[in-house]
Each structure stands twice: as C-alpha cells, then as structure tokens.
C-alpha cells in the first residue's frame, strides 16, 4: 500500500471514530423536539446577519463588531446541530453508507439551490445599488452571511427531519444481542 493510500485509510478511520464519538454525545438532546427547538433557535441568526448587513451603517467601526458578535452566536448552534446529526449532512461519502449518501445528496441539492438563489439576489442588489460607496463592504458581509446560511442548511434540515434516536441503534455491536425481537411477521415498507 502506498503512503498516500495508507494516509487516506488512517484519515477515514479517524473520521469514523470521530463520528462514532459524536453519536454518543448529548444523549438527552437526541430527540426530535429538542433538535427542532435548536433549529428554530438557529434560523434567526443567519437571517439576522443578512438583515444587519443590509441595514447597518458600515462607516461606523462598531458595525463590524456587531456583525462578528452575531456570527459568534451562529457558530455554537451549528456545532451542536452537527453533533446531533453526527455530521451526516457534511461528512465525506467514504464515511457514509448508501442511505446516508442518499440523504446527503438530497440535502446538498437544497443547499445549492439556496446558495444559487442568494447569489442571484446579491447580483441584483449590486446592480441596483452600484452607486452606493459602501457597496463593496456591504456585499462582502452579505456574501459571508449567505454562504454560512447555505452551508448550514443541510445540517439544520437534517436535524429537523431526524426522528428520535433509537437506543437499539446505539448498542455496542461487540456485545451479544440482549433483546430478541418478537415480531414474527415481515416489516411493511
């Protein structure tokens, strides 16, 4: 095995271990109502960033600090949502199985749509406000807000859709099954 292949295999193993650890974190938060509550709390943050960018006076040096403060609120929300979704919406394909890849692809499409629409709106904003002397700085911050929104949409959507974690999914595979299913029939799809 070449050094590159070995390094890749090690990186994948580390990634799998990281996801496994993530799946064990915040067990009491891994329920649908809590995930949804967190998404509902997260959503106003990127929207606030967009509104602030469009309304604040960018000549004032405090403005950037206000923007950074809101940005600082966005980051922990996104981190917790990533933990609660085991980063399935953002992990590389090699770390996911076929179901997760299917879900990730659907979410990525939504993210791409959000980003494309936001970019188009920003282009129109630039065209209609080309004589604004602060348009460059305002658009730069607007782009950051839109990129952050699009980047976190897959994780937020997944968190919204995910059902409660099933404790049986978190059982240690190295331990023999301690509960035998008693359904005799097949499972309806």
């Amino acid at each position: 095995m070449s050094r590159m292949h070995q390094a890749w295999a090690e990186a994948l193993q580390r990634g799998e271990q990281r996801r496994h650890r993530m799946a064990q974190r915040l067990p009491s938060w891994r329920t649908r109502p809590r995930r949804r509550a967190l998404v509902a709390l997260w959503l106003p943050v990127p929207l606030a960033l967009i509104v602030l960018t469009l309304t604040l006076d960018w000549d004032n040096p405090v403005t950037s600090l206000v923007y950074l403060a809101v940005l600082a609120v966005w980051y922990p929300f996104w981190l917790v949502l990533r933990v609660l979704t085991t980063a399935s919406a953002e992990a590389i394909v090699a770390l996911l199985d076929e179901r997760e890849v299917e879900v990730r692809n659907r979410l990525s499409f939504v993210s791409l749509s959000v980003l494309s629409t936001a970019n188009l709106l920003i282009v129109f904003y630039l065209i209609f406000n080309h004589d604004d002397p602060l348009i460059a700085i305002r658009t730069a911050y607007l782009l950051i807000a839109c990129i952050l929104l699009a980047a976190s949409v897959p994780t937020a959507l997944l968190a919204w859709r995910m059902p409660d974690d099933d404790p049986e999914d978190l059982e240690n595979p190295d331990r023999p099954a301690d509960r035998a299913g008693n359904d005799e029939g097949g499972i309806s799809a």
Binding site: E98, R99, E168, E171, P173
Partner: peptide, 9 residues
Amino acid sequence: EVNPQTIGA
C-alpha cells in the same frame, strides 16, 4: 458495513 441506523431504517 453500514451504520446501525440504516438497519433500523
């Protein structure tokens, strides 16, 4: 070689 959640699904 899948995740346990996929077996559940």
